[in-house]
Simulated assay, not measured.
Amino acid sequence: MNTSRGQSATVNAGSMADIAFLLLIFFLVTTTISDEKGILQQLPAECPSGTICKADIAERNLLRIYINAENEIIVKNEIILIEKLK
């Protein structure tokens, strides 16, 4: 009997790439991608023209932005740069 303990079995690596490619295609085809719903907003009703509309909006839902005479933007009583306004 001829047994050599120094040699290891070889695996054909060419078919490994084919199997990996087929698995990739399988998962791309079968995976479902969830839809982005974004931020849900409730806009006020449209106001008829020529009338003054008033709506009760909670203070926590308001962001007050002011521009002074020097064209500086003021949010929450702090002057900020336009790049910082998000």
Rank of each mutant, 00 (worst) to 15 (best):
R64W: 07
S8D: 12
A45K: 13
C53V: 12
L43I: 14
C47G: 08
T32V: 08
T51A: 10
L28G: 08
L85V: 13
P48N: 14
E72A: 06
T10A: 05
R5S: 07
K86I: 14
A69F: 05
G6Y: 04
T51L: 11
R5V: 02
G50K: 02
S8P: 00
L81G: 02
I80N: 02
I73L: 11
A13N: 09
I52T: 15
E59W: 04
K76E: 09
D35P: 03
T32C: 02
P44G: 03
I73S: 00
I80C: 04
D35K: 05
E83D: 15
C47L: 14
N77R: 10
M1W: 03
E72V: 03
A58R: 14
I74W: 08
I19S: 14
R60Q: 13
I82S: 02
Y66L: 13
S8K: 12
A17T: 14
L28F: 13
A9P: 00
P48C: 08
A69V: 11
I79P: 02
K37D: 03
A9N: 14
T3Q: 09
L85C: 13
M1G: 07
N77S: 15
F27T: 09
A13F: 10
I19W: 01
A69C: 04
N71A: 03
T31M: 03
